[in-house]
């Protein structure tokens, strides 16, 4: 069993990745712990092959995996997990995010009590509009989950193999690994790090905003996270709260209309508000029905998922 599996996601055809990997190789070689280098080409297999044939000496030092189609980071990690021999996984994207000394700091922060370490980039070299977006995103996640995490946008993580085995990571949820692991009782640590400046010359600034679909998918991710943290085993609580609110409003409207009919003689059925009341009643009952369906799914299909993690038996 090795100490570290150093894993890179190669999502973009980024020419600097070879240099990044070599730097990391140097960094880990200078440390006493054993390690292995792994690169996952996610839809960039041809690019990786070309790059490695150009440098056969380094190619011998790394294990490369090619994903047949564009899979999310969570799926990549889960599928190569059994090929990795490290006790700890050190995961990075294809761009270098942190200064080398920050990597050392992260590795030194590891102790027996910590299960997952995430960096918190301090002086970011990004346009202020990016930083602002990232701040809003992280604050939102903090508010929803109640966990004190500051930099989920950075994809560098160091975690125990067990963390990946015991969390149900899927879809776009790799970003939220610290949250998922905290929900399962793993101990998080956040370490203040320096954002990577670039080699020599400062990095080029990118455009101010992401594509609209990215914002949409982030919002959906956060909603998924919210549902995962609060209601995954009790869907009826979520749906019945919507249903109850909607039914209560519907009954109130009908009651007011009824009073107006009695005291003012207004015809109840001919008013648009009446349609609204009926509509809300239908919505309320339907969402309660959805909740019931959710409960049935959890009850009949959730048996394989154990809710507790045993630390020790004596």
């Amino acid at each position: 069993m090795l100490k570290y599996s150093v894993i890179f996601f190669l999502k973009d055809q980024n020419k600097d990745v070879l240099r990044f990997m070599k730097d990391m190789y140097e960094l880990f070689s200078s440390r006493p712990d054993s390690f292995e280098m792994i690169v996952i080409a996610n839809g960039t297999g041809g690019f990786l092959k070309n790059m490695l044939t150009g440098d056969p000496e380094f190619a011998g030092k790394i294990k490369a995996f090619e994903m047949s189609n564009k899979a999310s980071q969570a799926v990549c990690l889960k599928s190569i997990m059994n090929e990795c021999n490290g006790e700890f996984f050190v995961v990075s994207g294809s761009y270098q995010q942190l200064m080398p000394e920050s990597y050392v700091k992260l590795l030194d922060a590891r102790d027996d009590d910590t299960d997952i370490i995430s960096p918190w980039r301090q002086h970011r070299f990004d346009p202020s509009i990016y930083k602002m977006q990232s701040t809003v995103f992280n604050a939102w996640v903090r508010w929803i989950t109640g966990f004190n995490m500051h930099d989920l946008s950075c994809n560098v993580r160091i975690f125990r193999r067990e963390v990946l085995e015991r969390t149900d990571l899927y879809g776009n949820m790799y970003r939220f690994l610290p949250v998922f692991s905290a929900l399962r009782g793993f101990k998080n640590k956040e370490v203040k790090c320096e954002h990577f400046k670039g080699h020599g010359e400062p990095r080029k600034a990118r455009a101010g905003f992401y594509h609209l679909s990215i914002y949409l998918s982030r919002i959906i991710d956060i909603f998924t996270l919210y549902f995962n943290t609060s209601f995954i085993k009790k869907p009826l609580r979520f749906f019945s709260s919507i249903g109850i609110i909607s039914i209560v409003i519907s009954i109130t409207i009908n009651f007011i209309l009824f009073l107006q009919k009695i005291f003012y003689g207004q015809n109840m059925a001919l008013r648009p508000m009446f349609i609204l009341a009926i509509f809300l009643l239908v919505v309320g009952v339907q969402s309660a029905g959805m909740g019931l369906l959710g409960e049935i799914i959890v009850f009949t299909h959730g048996r394989r998922k154990r809710e507790y993690i045993i630390e020790k038996i004596i």
């Binding site: 399962r184 793993f186 045993i310 004596i314």
Partner: peptide, 14 residues
């Protein structure tokens, strides 16, 4: 005596 320790608070049912 036999004892089981949970990693975190999982609730009485668990």
């Amino acid at each position: 005596l036999k004892a089981i320790k949970f990693r975190h608070n999982c609730g009485q049912t668990s």
